[in-house]
Write a protein that binds this DNA or RNA. Sequence first.
DNA 1: ACAGCCATGTAACTCGTTACATGATTAC
DNA 2: GTAATCATGTAACGAGTTACATGGCTGT
Lengths: 189, 189
Amino acid sequence: MGQDLPVTSYALLGLLTFGDELTGYELKQRADATLRFYWVSPAMSQVYSELARLADRGLVLTRARRSNGDETTATTYRISAAGRRALETWMRESEPGFSVLKHPVALRLLLGHVVDPETTIAMLEAHVEALDAERAALARVREGLRGRDEPGQPFRHPSLVADWGLDYFDNERRIVTHLISRLREEGDA
Amino acid sequence: MGQDLPVTSYALLGLLTFGDELTGYELKQRADATLRFYWVSPAMSQVYSELARLADRGLVLTRARRSNGDETTATTYRISAAGRRALETWMRESEPGFSVLKHPVALRLLLGHVVDPETTIAMLEAHVEALDAERAALARVREGLRGRDEPGQPFRHPSLVADWGLDYFDNERRIVTHLISRLREEGDA
DNA sequence: ACAGCCATGTAACTCGTTACATGATTAC
DNA sequence: GTAATCATGTAACGAGTTACATGGCTGT
């Protein structure tokens, strides 16, 4: 039956459990706003192909929207009862597995002996700036959940995850800043 | 010339800059010990195909080891001068890009409204255990670098990255433990 | 009129995985 | 003798990307 799907499929399906009905385009935007921080935001083309597969298996239902005359320009998707069951079974019965981190900055620091110290320091400084920008983007998302983020409310769990993410960014910034000063001290010595 | 390679190729090439000569098998072990925490440890089969590609481009040099009679059972790889240049150019001239995190536990917490609170709490508790195990594995790696981890010594940078990783694990544990108590309080209310 | 966003998809391709296949050496 | 580890690869496949192609609608 519910032949196993990749995690990204379930992730997209999960984004449809917040009570609304979205176009592929809108789903991509939601993924960019949330999923991106903890998983990946699939390319536009993949969003469409995943939705097609989910529809194929009856896990989402489609509806034509905005029919002007004969032209149908948009299709919206909503999760089906079977989709909810499949998602719940997946959550309950499969192992999450451990996180996979692809951290190009850490990788390059590992190989720091290949370049001069200034290059490494500059890279870490740029990383701090990037972290600040990402943190700010997540903070805006978090703010958007205010008012519906209490226990029992619809965005309770998204808020918890966003708080986790913000804390992660704060800690990462602290570590990297500390690494920079360690490297600077070596340079002066 | 140095047609662009995927990051994983450069990562493997970088693991050969620590002054020794390894078989594919040994390189995989080194990747499991280090790369795994900040990047990915490629499958055995990919290690061999990446090495073949690197050799093809002259970035690594091969040598037959352990020839008993006529049989050659192992090939070792070392980085070439061209390989060092290519790696340095890559480090200096390409943008690292931002980290990609695939965090199945965060993803499932995001969708916590789909299952009952106990399921979510149990998942987070299992995650704490997994974190402890990973932290311990990294701590063993870090210990193995003691004595060669001072500024100017060969494992300086690997040590910095390992310290970063340990700090990350500590912080993650703290956050997740806190999330568990938040969820528990809600359950009691 | 033109830019930018909304909206949908196809095609080609690469990365990386699992499964499979083989065989030598070492430890108990 | 048999299990684990060392050692090397091939083949099939799937996930996910970029590039390409198309067109409507909205604001200036």
